[in-house]
Nucleic acid binder design. Structure first.
Length: 716
RNA sequence: GGGCGAUUAGCUCAGUUGGUAGAGCAGUUCGUUUACACCGAAAAGGUCGGGGGUUCAAAUCCCUCAUCGCCCACCA
């Protein structure tokens, strides 16, 4: 027996060595697997954002995906787990801007190329740091196939999709209302905004013969349309399109009455003026009735000249106070409701209110793509492991809105298009050859915007496999499982399905496993400011990666948030040590100078007759069924329970008596049974606790032994 | 406003198709001459949120109420 068993299990000493041992073996790469590995099993790793350290959520996905991959590899599949790193456009830019702020710098004062190069350097250094962290978590992924979202090959595929969308008339450039963040100076998709409820004052103003209500007086300068419901009895004497002369903020104006049934007669006075440039509802009314619209607030949140001299250049908050005061002085303020509850949109990064603005952007028509995605799920081509997410998925797709994919940030994939300087026409130009507007023949300039990072991420499964001609695409697509957090079901998963089907005519993955969020011991969200963050790398250092991984898997049902505490991780460190000592006991008691043949007649006979081995076979069957059905939380608990409370507490305890009583004729048989149980247990545990099981495996005196990572899962 | 989920031992959570309630941690009593004190043995602890229904049988299926959480949403 190796002397190392005389000490407690030492994960720090073991893990790095074992990982190198695996990497050298080459078995992370499906091409190097032995002959018996034929059918493919593929998982594309959700590429972590290369802008910081890994958190518990990353540890969870590594634990889950690695266990699936290791299990399938042992089952004889040709397993590919393809790792990657995400440049994470807006996310990274926000992180980097914070860094710049700390240094007293601003991106708006930097040369774009210089800024880009700086962020690239930052990202690449984070990327290699992050790769080391993924390794230390024991990920058996194929590093030779690692991809990065900004590689030229990936860009080329993304550009191809952009072009195809344009050719198929699913892409358009439109002057539409967008979610504008005044801090970040970019538009955002619907998903990148959040709604919060807040209380504001609600003002009623006299507007000609009407009283109109608003929470945003500062937008009202240019309002020249008043809208009521067509069925509203109170306003039936006025005709649609009728004009009124009235006194307003900066003097007399002419207003026009519009009738539209979006108006809620019950709300306020049933009459409102509209500001199409700064409100999505108003914008749609204006579109329907072909009305004019003007910009009142600039992209930095300041009033434009249209507001009049005394308001120009003022920020929103100041302008609001001033305009109320002025209208009040003019006798046009009717009343003010305090504490009006309503919800507003905020930027999901800085929590500042979104200022809707009209801006020319690239949009994708989502409805046709959504239709096919829903069909694929309905026809069971794509299966949600967590069924309730299927409902959420449908609900979102049924109500999908067009997707703005233009971002006014430098960190991302440039949009390959030209914009006409005169007529603002957008022209897709992959080869950068167009110099004149095909519509008006005027000069064009390069679109300065970049893609929403999710537009390229949405193509990740087929892009990483080298669509359309790569061997990997032919061999490994569609992939088997998409495993990621439920928080990015819409951001990422739904888009991968839509874009995957659209581009390849084939689903990108067959099964979707969504994990929940990892919270602290009390169920609170982990955050740096609360100081309750559990850093997975620290935990792995302190208790061992196997212990960390077990703590993330046992009792963690798919799709549900889980709470993680150091106590739980510590418990599995003890378990690792228990397994270590079980192995020590067995190695001490068997003659390990000669190798044991697992296919011997004696052992084969025992497998059929010994009641303990029969029980273990039943358990193996049961666990295998759990593994096939994604019940890892059950499989892991069952094997834990068996090892500790059956194998150690009962079987080994009982064997001591027999071993100590040297006269027992069956002593060799008992030792054989113990070894048989141990080697099976190591196999069952390997997907969950890869390091310690491989480490013990190397010490077992077994004939024709291979690496545990490619040993055959026990077939019963 | 719509949708989804949760409510089980002091705490944090499991419980796969309905068949006499489980784990970790905390806590009680006892136990160390060699696998392991990162341990063992024993005991203790829950009318499974309330109410109703289906069933021979319900934590599990159905209805209803309460509380909490999450997601989606263009009432100015």
């Amino acid at each position: 027996m190796n002397d190392k068993f005389l000490k407690p299990y030492n994960p720090q000493e073991t893990e790095k060595r074992i990982y190198e041992f695996w990497e050298k073996s080459g078995f992370f790469n499906p091409d190097n697997l032995p002959q018996r590995h034929k059918d493919p099993f593929t998982i594309i790793m959700p590429p972590p954002n290369a802008n910081g350290s890994l958190h518990s959520g990353h540890a969870l996905f590594v634990a889950l995906e690695d266990l699936m991959v290791r299990y399938k590899r042992m089952r004889g599949y040709k397993t590919l787990w393809l790792p990657g790193a995400d440049h994470a456009g807006f996310e990274t830019q926000v992180v980097y801007e914070k860094k710049l702020e700390k240094e007293g710098r601003s991106r708006f004062k930097m040369d774009p190329k210089e800024l880009y190069d700086e962020i690239m350097e930052f990202t690449l250094s984070n990327k290699s740091f992050m790769e080391g962290q993924v390794r230390s978590l024991g990920a058996s992924c194929d590093w030779s196939r690692e991809r990065f979202t900004l590689e030229p090959e990936i860009k080329k595929i993304v550009y191809g999709t952009f072009k195809k969308l344009s050719d198929d008339k699913l892409l358009y450039r439109g002057k539409r209302i967008v979610n504008w963040c005044s801090k970040h100076q970019t538009s955002l998709s619907e998903l990148e905004t959040e709604s919060i409820e807040q209380e504001d004052k609600f003002y009623y103003f006299q507007y000609g013969p009407f009283q109109i209500g608003t929470t945003r007086p500062e937008t009202k300068f240019g309002d020249k349309y008043v809208v009521v419901h067509p069925d509203d009895e109170r306003y039936k004497q006025y005709k649609d399109g009728q004009k009124f002369d009235l006194e307003w903020v900066n003097g007399p104006i002419t207003a026009t009455l519009i009738k539209d049934d979006v108006i809620d007669m019950e709300f306020g006075t049933g009459a409102m003026t509209i500001t199409p440039w700064h409100d999505p509802v108003d914008f749609e009314i204006a579109q329907r009735h072909n009305l004019e619209y003007e910009q009142i607030i600039d992209f930095h949140g300041k009033m434009l000249p249209i507001a009049g001299q005394e308001f120009e250049g003022k920020n929103i908050k100041d302008a609001r106070e001033l305009i109320i005061k002025k209208l009040d002085e003019k006798g046009l303020l009717v009343k003010t409701d305090e504490n009006f509850k309503h919800s507003i949109k905020i930027c999901y990064k800085c929590n500042r209110p979104i200022e809707p603005q009209i801006k020319a952007q690239w949009f994708i028509k989502m409805q046709p793509l959504a239709q096919k995605a829903m069909e694929a799920v309905k026809n069971k081509k794509i299966n949600f492991v967590t069924e309730r997410h299927e409902k959420i998925f449908f609900h979102w797709l049924e109500n999908i809105r067009d997707w703005n994919i233009s971002r006014q940030i430098i960190w991302g994939i440039p949009i390959p298009a030209k914009i006409c300087k005169k007529c603002n026409e957008g022209i897709v130009d992959l080869d950068n050859i167009i110099s004149k507007c095909p519509k008006c023949n005027n000069e064009v300039e390069k679109d300065p915007d970049t893609f929403d990072t999710w537009f390229s991420s949405g193509q990740w499964p087929f892009a990483t496999l080298n669509y359309p001609d790569g061997d990997d695409f032919k061999n490994f697509y569609p992939t088997d499982v998409m495993e990621t957090g439920h928080d990015i079901l819409f951001f990422w998963v739904a888009r991968m399905i839509m874009l995957g089907i659209y581009r390849t005519n084939e689903i990108p993955f067959k099964n979707i496993y969504l994990h929940g969020m990892v919270r602290d011991a009390k169920g609170k969200k982990m955050s740096k400011s609360k100081g309750n963050v559990i850093n997975p790398l620290d935990m792995s250092e302190k208790f061992g990666t196997d212990a960390l991984r077990m703590s993330l898997i046992v009792g963690n049902t798919p799709g549900t948030d889980m709470n993680l505490s150091e106590d739980k991780i510590r418990a599995y460190k003890k378990f690792a040590n228990k397994l270590w000592n079980i192995s020590r006991f067995i190695l001490e008691n068997i003659d390990d100078s000669k190798e044991i043949d697992l296919q011997s007649d004696e052992l084969n006979k025992l497998r059929k007759t010994d009641s303990e081995l029969q029980k273990l076979q039943k358990l193996t069957l049961d666990i295998t069924d759990d593994m096939e059905n994604y019940r890892f939380y059950m499989a892991s608990e069952k094997i834990y329970h068996y090892v500790w409370h059956e194998f150690a507490d009962k079987i080994i305890e009982e064997s001591k008596l027999k071993i100590n009583n040297q006269k027992d004729e069956n002593i060799n048989e008992i030792k054989l049974i113990l070894l048989e149980i141990l080697q099976n247990v190591l196999k069952l545990l390997h997907p969950f606790m890869p390091f310690i099981t491989e480490e013990i495996w190397t010490e077992l005196p077994i004939k024709n032994k291979k690496y545990l990572i490619i040993e055959e899962w026990t077939n019963v």
